[in-house]
Simulated scan of single mutants.
Amino acid sequence: MSRKRTMSLKKKLVLTGATGALVTGAVVTTMATGNAAAPDVVCKGSTVTLSGEGGAPAASSGTFPVGTKLKVTNLDNGQSTTVAVNGPSGSCVLLNNAAFDKVREPGKNLIRRARIERVGGGAAPAGATGAAGAPGAAGVQVPPATGEVVCKGSTVTLSGEGGAPAASSGTFPVGTKLKVTNLDNGQSTTVAVNGPSGSCVLLNNSAFDKVREPGKNLIRRARIERVG
C-alpha cells in the first residue's frame, strides 16, 4: 500500500472522546469506555427471609453497617426493593415485613433465589453481631449448652416451609442435628438439617413454632449447638 493511501486511512479513523465511538469511513462502531460501573453483587447464594418486624421498609444485616443501601431482587418473580440497613442481624440481609411484602411470592416467607446488591453507603463490611452466648433474658432460665456452640451471633428465622420439624443450613451438611435455643424465652428444639440455605440454620414452620415468641418471625438472641 502506498504511503499516500496509508495516510488517507489514518485521516478517516477518528475516536471521539465524548461518545467512545469509532468512526471508520461511514461505519460507526460503539466501543466500551469502561465508565459504566457493574452492580456490586454481594452475599452470593444467600437466601432472604423476613424478620417479622414492623415499620417502614428496612433491613438488618450482619455483614453491612447501618446506613448501607441494599437492593434485593427475588429472581423467581422479578420483584425488587431497595432498603437501608437499620440494625444488626445474623444474615447478610433480613427484611422487615413492609420490605419483604414488596418482593415476596404469596404465602412464602423465604426467597431462595435472591440477588443482593450494595447500591449505596457502607463501604466497609461490618462483623456479625449478636448475643448467642449471652444468658437468657431477665427471669428466663436457660440450661447450659450440652453440645458444640456454633455460628455465634446468628439470628434464626423461619423458612415458611411446611412438614415435620426440620432445618436447612448453608454451614452444615444434610443429616446434621442442631439444637436451637431462644434465649429470650428459654425454649429449645432439636432438628436435623434436610437441605441447603444461606443461613447457619433456617427453621421450617413447625420447628420455629417450638421456640418462637408470639407474633415474631425472628429469634435475635439464639444459641445454636451441633449435637449430632
Rank of each mutant, 00 (worst) to 15 (best):
L110V: 00
I111Y: 09
R112H: 11
R112E: 13
R113L: 12
A114P: 09
I116W: 03
I116G: 11
R118Q: 05
V119Y: 01
V119F: 01
G120Y: 03
G121I: 08
G122V: 01
A123F: 02
A123T: 15
A124P: 02
P125F: 02
P125W: 01
P125N: 05
A126W: 08
G127H: 09
G127M: 09
A128P: 04
T129A: 15
T129H: 15
T129Y: 14
T129L: 15
A131E: 12
A131N: 11
A132F: 02
G133Y: 06
G133M: 04
G133D: 09
P135V: 13
P135N: 13
P135T: 12
G136D: 09
A138H: 11
G139L: 13
G139I: 01
V140W: 14
P144W: 00
T146D: 00
G147H: 04
G147C: 04
E148N: 04
V150Y: 12
V150T: 08
V150F: 11
V150R: 11
C151K: 09
K152R: 15
K152N: 12
G153R: 09
S154N: 15
T155Y: 12
T155R: 11
V156K: 00
V156Y: 02
T157C: 08
L158P: 04
G160Q: 08
G160E: 10
E161F: 06
G162Y: 03
G162L: 11
G163D: 08
G163F: 07
G163I: 14
G163Q: 03
A164W: 02
A164R: 03
P165R: 05
P165Q: 06
A166S: 14
A166R: 03
A167L: 05
A167M: 06
S168D: 09
S169K: 13
S169I: 04
S169V: 05
G170A: 04
G170K: 06
G170P: 06
G170V: 00
F172N: 09
